[in-house]
């Protein structure tokens, strides 16, 4: 008798566990509309999407989760792509947008057709869509907080910015300016655009470096730290404290320096796995859950102590990453 009740209890438990997995969304289709795939961050983002959503489809949580990437990183192209996705009858579209406002028209069309639209990383401002945004301003500000702790006396800084005219670049830059305003012992003596690419950053830094006085620290936006380090080395200058951006090559360089001379810095960026958070959020909305329209996703910071562990788990050539499970997504939605 006792055995049977245990079995029953076990079966009940199994049912309760299986229930959310096969809820109302098992015949729903989710699409990813992505505007660019030409760098390691985006490649990791797509890989994470693939890994998590394939499992979700296999588990019967959703019917499909197909990724679509435009070839030219253009607004018109992505707008046409989203129009196609509407016609193909997807129930939800997850977007990494080429522009915060230029896609609003087509996003509104999707909403009017009863489609759930969730934007992340490159968010859209159309009110009917959900936004999973990163606090980019804070990402700039924490760099200065870190520097002020490391260098009490302050000094000259070189700022490497991202792609000119992009929202993300402006926000991080504002955060850095705020940080400099707060920690007045620091002074930005030069600023270049590195376009989040090692080669571009290396080229720009090598150009401005000869004209600069001694540089104590380099504040960055991610994807540019290794290039900056190369430029300092080529110019025969002492390596300043360069904030890294979670790319594997940056972490590997940091580890090399740490082993050689105890180099200390920190690394901060957004985990490309934020695409999987967007997937779960879309799934939860389809499931009828109450989700606030604006969500903030924490950025991923690597400190001296976590360096080895992060480097180990980061794929060669990739970006330090966190993939979200459904439980993680629920926590973010609950604001925890």
């Amino acid at each position: 008798m006792k055995k049977t009740s245990l079995l029953v209890a076990g079966a009940l438990a199994a049912i309760t566990f299986a229930l959310p997995a096969s809820a109302d969304t098992k015949d729903k289709k989710i699409a990813l509309s992505n505007n660019y795939a030409g760098n390691s961050w985006r490649q990791s983002m797509l890989k994470s999407w693939d890994k998590v959503t394939k499992q979700a489809v296999a588990d019967g949580i959703v019917a499909a989760a197909d990724p679509f990437t435009t070839s030219e990183n253009q607004v018109t192209e992505q707008a046409a792509q989203i129009q196609n996705l509407i016609l193909q009858g997807y129930n939800a579209i997850v977007i990494n947008a080429a522009s915060p406002d230029a896609l609003n028209g087509v996003v509104k069309q999707a909403c009017d057709a009863g489609i759930i639209v969730v934007s992340f990383d490159g968010i859209v401002t159309e009110p009917c869509a959900w936004r999973i945004a990163v606090d980019f301003k804070k990402m700039g500000a924490v760099q200065l907080d870190y520097l002020s702790e490391k260098m009490k006396d302050g000094g000259n800084l070189l700022e490497i910015r991202g792609l000119a005219g992009v929202f993300v670049d402006d926000e991080i830059h504002k955060g850095i300016e705020e940080g400099v305003g707060k920690h007045t012992q620091f002074k930005i003596v030069g600023s270049v655009h590195g376009d989040w690419a090692q080669e571009v950053a290396q080229k720009a830094v090598a150009g401005i470096l000869p004209s600069l006085p001694e540089v104590k620290g380099v504040v960055t936006q991610g994807g540019d730290g290794y290039g900056a380090a190369q430029a300092f080395k080529a110019a025969g200058r002492p390596t300043p404290l360069i904030i890294m951006g979670n790319r594997q090559d940056e972490l590997a360089w940091w580890k090399e320096q740490k082993d050689a001379n105890g180099y200390e810095t920190m690394s901060v960026s957004i985990a490309p796995g934020v695409s999987t958070l967007a997937f779960w959020v879309a799934q939860m909305i389809l499931d009828g859950k109450e989700v606030p329209k604006d969500l903030v996703v924490p950025f991923l910071q690597i400190n001296q102590a976590d360096l080895e562990k992060s480097l180990e788990t980061t794929e060669k050539g990739g970006v330090a990453n966190v993939e979200y499970s459904k439980a993680d997504a629920e926590k973010v939605v609950a604001g925890k």
């Binding site: 760098n39 390691s40 690419a197 080669e199 571009v200 290396q202 090559d249």
Partner: peptide, 12 residues
């Protein structure tokens, strides 16, 4: 020169 190949190395 720049310590490895990257997908966006041809940009610009």
């Amino acid at each position: 020169f720049s310590g490895g190949a990257a997908l966006n190395m041809g940009e610009g």
